[in-house]
Design a protein around this nucleic acid. Structure first.
Lengths: 263, 263
DNA sequence: CTTGCCCACTCGTCTATACGAGTATGCCTG
DNA sequence: CAGGCATACTCGTATAGACGAGTGGGCAAG
């Protein structure tokens, strides 16, 4: 037998309303969450309890949950229950994150920054290989046919948060330390400058969308979590694009920050 | 009787697979869309047709559609069918969009830019009033209690794409043209500079998330479309924050672009 | 005490059915 | 010919039931 819900926690349905029953239920749950009646990580009433409380069928209750899942408010765990989705700590990316002064240390910016924030950083899925440039990458790098691709995935406290691929023209990267799995202190930007490509500026393009199934898998994304897609192009002082970095980030793990001159 | 589907358009189910039937159906539809077998705006097979084709119940087919809706790939229209969601034309926001040289004309940047792109721009829901500052806005403006709020919604070709609110300290804005519905040529930034607050730089914070029900309504968002939440703070040459602009954009209508110095 | 099993509870998947409501089309009537 | 209605098709909502599978606690056997 399902124990009945604490009275007052959730209201009743309005049979005179035009609003669909499953939406009314979703509304009540959403409001209860917003008001803090259910805290982050806390378990919502089970499907059976809500079926009893509202006197509706189970599919109707599930329909309500699927609305909230689509909004990224809750997530279901098989065998356990439906929980209020906790807001994970976010990583703030400042627009000066590629400044030279941040490039002195031996470790990558990601590692240094994560340590400072008290989290446990990790990089995996390293792949470095030459391949055919996609149409988009080719256009951005100035009609290059083949490129060196550096793929890696970033994790914070075991959770994957970002998947990035850098593309570099072969005439710049081939045979250098950039083509090695470990590009050395200061990362590939430091190597590029040593190779005579002094960096002048970056261009970043940002869009947000729902993830593809592959991205859901790679980033372990919950339902209702969008991704931020960022494409950065690095230009040297001669105006030549020397790297394109394609990054897909779990949107709930990031806040991007930019500083713009008013010029 | 439902006409049967063109053979070869969609495959069969794999009963030996662990993958749930509704996921297999979603996979096949997604692949067909990706391969261009269904074009943008084109109608997918109706629920009844898929029921016949796969020999499953209608709820299973609907479940597949709801997966694709959550991914933002398709949208359903009551009484008509399920359609491949067209990618709307995107609005590119460049990081120099607030440069003084773009501030000369009589019309707002939004209008000018949209006209240049050949679309029909519109601004509505104008509201200008004094109100209590939220905690966040107060913190960003430097512990201000009350602010002037300027709310407006932007539309392109009749479609709402952005909802923005500017907050300004009362000691700056009260009694000036900034407090009028029409702030005059060059917008409020031009007025701020005339008032002696020469702008030095902007700070923008960006995150992406699923929209709240209110945002779905205001921006007429389809299922599976995230929003980009952008908060811009404008600083004058004395380092004082003179405006905070809180913007929520339909993510499928925007690409943001930034240029960063390599310093 | 520890191990292992069973059971109760949870969500996941799927079927079958019913009715409602929006849309488009074609036919029939005036 | 024009207007309106009937109808068939679309998706939306809701019910009732069945079985499967993951989880965790309690109980019984070793």
């Amino acid at each position: 037998m399902s124990p009945s819900l604490p009275s007052g926690l959730l209201g009743d349905l309005d049979p005179t309303s035009d609003r669909a029953v499953f939406r009314q239920i979703a509304d009540q749950l959403r409001e209860a969450i917003d008001r803090g009646r259910f805290r982050e990580g806390e378990k919502l009433p089970s499907e059976a309890e809500l079926v009893d409380h509202y006197g509706v069928s189970r599919m109707t209750v599930r329909n309500s949950f699927s609305v909230l899942q689509g909004e990224g408010l809750v997530h279901a765990e098989h065998g356990k229950g439906v929980f209020v989705r906790p807001r994970p700590p976010v990583r703030r990316l400042a627009s000066d994150r590629f400044a030279r002064r941040h490039r002195e240390q031996g470790k990558s910016a990601f590692i240094v920054e994560a340590n400072a924030a008290g989290s446990h950083p990790q990089v995996d899925s390293l792949e470095v290989k030459e391949e055919k440039a996609s149409q988009d990458v080719s256009a951005r790098l100035g009609s290059v046919r083949r490129v060196l691709a550096r793929r890696r995935r970033y994790l914070l406290d075991g959770r994957p948060v970002e998947f990035a691929t850098s593309y570099l023209p072969l005439d710049i990267a081939r045979g250098t330390q950039i083509a090695e799995p470990n590009p050395g202190p200061g990362g590939i930007y430091a190597r590029l400058e040593e190779l005579g490509h002094r960096l002048d500026h970056f261009e970043e393009e940002i869009c947000a969308r729902m993830p593809s199934p592959a991205e859901v898998k790679t980033l372990h994304l919950a339902a209702g979590v969008p991704v931020i897609h960022l494409i950065r192009t690095a230009f040297d002082t001669e105006g030549r694009p020397v790297e394109v970095c394609d990054t897909v980030m779990a949107a709930d793990a990031y806040v991007l920050s930019y500083q713009l001159p008013a010029t």
